[in-house]
Design a protein around this nucleic acid. Sequence first.
DNA 1: ACGTGCTCCTGTGTGC
DNA 2: TGCACACAGGAGCACG
Length: 262
Amino acid sequence: MPELPDVESYKRYMDATCLHQQIKTVHVRERRILKDVSPSRLRSTLGGRCFLSTVRWGKYLFVETDDRNWLMLHFGMTGFLKYFKNEEKSGPHARLIITFRNGYHLAYVCQRLLGKVRLVNSVDDFTGSNLGPDALAVNFRDFKKIIGKSRGGIKSTLMNQKYMAGIGNIYSDEILFQSAVHPKMQGCKLNDRQIKRIYHNMRKVLKRAIERRADLDKLPRSYLLPHRQRGNSCPRCSSALRGEKIGGRTAYFCPRCQNEKI
DNA sequence: ACGTGCTCCTGTGTGC
DNA sequence: TGCACACAGGAGCACG
């Protein structure tokens, strides 16, 4: 479930806790989270180094070491970071534990093991061939180009990380709800006004969610997300919300407010 | 170039 | 009560 706003709060959390401290040990508890790197290479790359900076691109977090290596963290749907002092509090799902010289630990926690940890040469090296522009960094001209040439449903397009990085199932529902656009509407059939609306709402929703630290319960009641459950009704018109499989995910939308012809 | 369906994975919730 | 199964969903893959 970690989408752009969640990962942005992980970045800020990491910036506030883990930078400029020497790494003492690296403990891989579950090697299935490692991608293209062995536990021993991860240990030797990170051991004795410090984290210098972090970069978020879409749902990915890149962490730079003081000798210019990059640790890449992806959180799947259940991943998050936890910085703590008492190692016994790491919990059963801590898959990777980095211990600093100051005695504190950073755990990469991932219950369902859908996340991935790897080493990359640089941010561009990875994003260049795998990810589109970050959803909060893309300008309107490029956004319009991406949406305008897409023949797929707009929800799938917004969620396609190669087109644009950062939006998943949850926030795409909110963006389309606020834009009053049906999730199956083809991108290339949207008019200028609709594309502008979606762009504006995408930025608004993501920024608001970041302010609330991606806590869905703290979003305004006028948003779809606090009501995004089977059997609930639209906060705007009180119609029953519809849950429908779109692109393998369950999309929630209001059939009345988002009723434009498909 | 699109949608579909499968895989990975585990904890929770539902139906028989 | 207990078992079987569906579901949650990010991403990568094969297929048509």
